[in-house]
């Protein structure tokens, strides 16, 4: 079969899969971002002893394969089926896409927490002192000064993390979620038509490309006050001795 015919035949299935992939990526990265804010604050401000459990979680989530985390949640929950049924949670864990979402949030929260911690620690102390000096409360200073600046510092790294998460979402296909990868594998297993993999690859690349452009646009908007100041300066001299 000609590759174009393959694409035409597979188009509706691929679009269904693409939609699932996008949903998985967006939901898990947004949930992880929401969880990362309080956790990053704990990482910055809490005493070392209080941070121990959090650091253990982050080390575990970053030191084990996402696939293993996904299996631990999806298959592992089966071991506690009676208990989960009793709590009314079994219907949640039975659905592979819920488990995939949970695994991705578990994983991405750890990464985003560390990225955001770096951002918060990168905010110049003078800005916080200035905010406090004009009478902002700690919370107001956090909301108006620290977090906006921290996000601007962390923005490119968070973008990278979301791309990694989008790529990792293909693993959901292994627990029978029909995302883009899942649809592709299904079509291949029926037809042995190799070109479907190449079309899937193109679609994944297209998602990344669109995302990178959108992310840059937001980044430019976040730092628009810096662009004007930086423009007239000559390029930095790389030779420093």
């Amino acid at each position: 079969m000609h590759p174009i015919d393959t694409l035409q035949a597979a188009w509706p299935a691929l679009m269904d899969g693409l939609w699932i992939t996008l949903q998985l990526t967006v939901f898990s990265s947004v949930l992880a971002a929401a969880l990362a804010v309080p956790l990053a604050l704990v990482r910055v401000h809490a005493p070392a002893a209080a941070q121990a459990p959090l650091r253990l979680y982050i080390s575990f989530a970053r030191g084990t394969p996402i696939l293993a985390q996904l299996f631990l949640i999806f298959y592992g929950s089966g071991q506690f089926r009676p208990l989960l049924t009793e709590w009314g949670l079994w219907s949640f864990f039975r659905d592979p896409s819920n488990c995939a979402l949970l695994a991705f949030v578990f994983n991405s929260t750890a990464y985003q927490t560390e990225i955001l911690r770096g951002g918060i620690q990168g905010v110049p102390p003078g800005e916080i002192e200035a905010a406090r000096a004009i009478g902002m409360s700690r919370v107001t200073a956090l909301r108006r000064v620290v977090l906006p600046h921290a996000y601007r510092i962390a923005w490119p790294a968070i973008g990278n993390e979301i791309i990694l998460l989008m790529k990792a979402s293909a693993l959901a296909s292994i627990v029978t979620v029909f995302d883009l990868m899942g649809q592709t594998r299904r079509i291949f297993s029926r037809s042995f038509d190799f070109s479907i993999y190449l079309w899937a690859a193109l679609l994944y690349l297209a998602i990344t490309a669109v995302f990178v452009v959108l992310w840059r646009l937001v980044e430019r908007r976040l730092s628009r006050h810096l662009a004007a100041r930086q423009a007239p300066l000559p390029a930095a001299n790389p030779r420093t001795t």
Binding site: I163, K167, A170, M181, T184, Y197, L198, Y204, L205, A209
Partner: peptide, 18 residues
């Protein structure tokens, strides 16, 4: 750009099946 943009699992299937 290509290799960093593709899911690793897709690369693995492309290599294995292809």
């Amino acid at each position: 750009t290509l290799m960093r943009g593709l899911p690793e699992i897709l690369t693995l299937f492309v290599v294995y099946n292809g």
